[in-house]
């Protein structure tokens, strides 16, 4: 049985089960144990997630076009975007590093955005297909979210390590800033999405009264 059907909800922070007051209008319900504001569903979840997804798509364009890192040497300045960095490593034969950067900076953000858009569309269409698979996709976006920070950290470490009295200097390009924003905004977008919405549409037939936890 679902909590919402039983007139209950749970605190998203401390998991306390809370009885919803009947006929309540307005006002914010607070968890009696931890004091956090309790919402049956995250408020304006779909709107916020859409807004953040669109924002991160917009940020992702300059993140890819502008250079991540500018290397100033006595021979001149070399600017690398994400993709040209990956190609450089492919050419020099560092396939492992090339694949790490490719996965972290290109595959992960795009996968995250595609999954979030798919989840939003399916929830808005009240789809009741494959709720378990869609929940798994949502958990995946939460897990892979922070791994795109790798490239930002690489830029930061390179700047901090390579400075030899003006001979060789590394500077962060504008692309790094936009890419950082992409990572942060997509992480917040994934947090704003409420996975319970998937089940609201999926659960149309009432099921047996109580279900028991599987213990592995």
């Amino acid at each position: 049985m679902r909590a919402i059907d039983a007139g209950l909800t749970s605190c998203h922070l401390c998991h306390q089960i809370i009885k919803l007051p009947e006929g309540r209008k307005g006002g914010v319900l607070h968890c009696p144990r931890c004091g956090e504001a309790v919402h049956v569903r995250k408020p304006f979840s779909i709107q916020y997630t859409w807004a953040l997804v669109i924002a991160s798509i917009i940020f992702y364009i300059p993140a890819n076009l502008l250079p991540m890192m500018e290397v100033h040497t006595f021979a001149g300045t070399q600017a690398d975007t994400i993709l040209s960095g990956v190609l450089y490593f492919l050419e020099t034969g560092s396939y492992l590093i090339a694949s790490v950067i490719f996965i972290a900076s290109i595959v992960v953000p795009i996968t995250k955005l595609i999954i979030l858009i798919y989840l939003l569309l399916s929830v808005q269409k009240h789809s009741h297909k494959n709720p378990i698979q869609r929940k798994k996709l949502y958990v995946l976006t939460e897990i892979i979210g922070k791994w795109s920070m790798v490239d930002v950290y690489v830029v930061a470490i390179m700047i901090a390590l390579v400075h030899f009295g003006g001979l060789t200097q590394i500077e962060a390009g504008a692309g790094a800033t936009y890419f950082l924003l992409v990572v942060i905004v997509t992480m917040i977008a994934a947090m704003q999405f409420d996975p319970k919405l998937i089940w609201d549409a999926a659960e149309t037939t009432p099921k047996k009264e109580t279900t028991y936890a599987r213990n592995a």
Partner: peptide, 22 residues
């Protein structure tokens, strides 16, 4: 326990047993 992902009310009859509860 109320499942965080799907809002299912789950009865855990032996919460003091070692392991993962799904």
């Amino acid at each position: 326990v109320c499942c965080h992902e799907c809002d299912e009310l789950v009865k855990v009859s032996n919460p003091h047993r070692e392991g993962r509860f799904k």
